[in-house]
Design a protein around this nucleic acid. Structure first.
Lengths: 165, 165
DNA sequence: CGCTTCCTTCAGAAATTTGTGAAGTTAAGG
DNA sequence: CCTTAACTTCACAAATTTCTGAAGGAAGCG
């Protein structure tokens, strides 16, 4: 049995994982198509799939693939590569791309912090509401630094467990 | 000017913060009404508002308040209190309720982990895809423990900065 | 024990989001 | 250059979500 990349192995098992995991991502706030595309990439052996492969495996139109990938690239959850000497585009997920995704999450928290800072000023730092906002702000600022350190510890831990990347 | 609790101070500034912060929460995946209700509570002096106050301040129907609060209570972002001897219900936010919200986030990650574990088995731990899933799984498991420790450090840091709770 | 107040549930209208087909654009290959 | 393969953009139909008004309880208060 020759295998068209990505749908080799047990298509049943792959699909089961892709849909299940994508559903969890959706529940966490991701849109359906980006979630499915991302899960499909995670579940592929090479970590790389072309637009056509994604469309076929997930039964969606090229337009849907395009939209999903644009979003995923924007938030750094996949990278796009131009296969040299071909008009096929390849989309790749790195197993450590989660850091990027988290970093992106950080950008969201940064905007929360901005809103909170404005709130503290607007409501008055000396009011009960203002000080609640200030404490909330302090929490996020604390988290920011911690996450940085945490990532570093993870890298060490991973290298010990899985061998250097 | 006597003040109906919650809309004292500068209603302009309050509203500006509420809508701005709520918008950020929405962008992070929260639904609009829960986001607005939560922001309104955060911005109130007592951290407590009644259903009527929320409805008036946010210009939404009692039904909308009800729905929003039900959701927020479910994910532990607010608690509901029955004002004794009254049919008014009061909704409260604790400034440290973010931990709860994060803990709730943890529940989501737990389900990610479940899906990943199944994926590792389904695709085969010895396949490239399987090992990618396994590494991803390890990352989340690592995070879980770290977050626990981080919260503890935050509590210490907060007590030093803000005085005991 | 009935009245009143407040909250909830529910059906449906309105708005938003989602995914598609079709047309458009870019770039490889003859 | 022209052709053709591949991705993208766009307008729209369908599905979903969101919020409301109205009806339906529960619980204090007289």
């Amino acid at each position: 049995m020759t295998e068209t990349a990505g749908v080799g192995r047990d298509p049943e098992a792959v699909s089961r994982f892709v849909e299940h995991f994508a559903a969890q991502l959706v529940e966490a706030g991701l849109q359906r198509m980006p979630a499915r595309v991302f899960a499909a990439l995670l579940a592929s052996d090479s970590g790389i799939l072309t637009s056509a492969e994604l469309g076929e495996q997930l039964q969606i139109s090229p337009a849907a693939v395009s939209g999903a990938v644009r979003y995923l690239a924007q938030v750094h959850m996949v990278s796009r590569e131009r296969e040299p000497g071909s008009r096929r585009e390849r989309y790749r997920v790195h197993s450590n791309q989660w850091y990027e995704a988290l970093t992106n999450r950080n950008a969201i928290i940064k905007r929360w912090e901005d809103a909170l800072r404005e709130g503290v000023v607007g409501l008055g730092a000396d009011t009960p509401a203002g000080s609640r906002l200030a404490e909330t702000l302090a929490f996020f600022e604390f988290m920011e630094g911690e996450i940085e350190a945490m990532m570093e510890r993870w890298r060490v831990h991973r290298d010990k467990t899985f061998g250097q990347a």
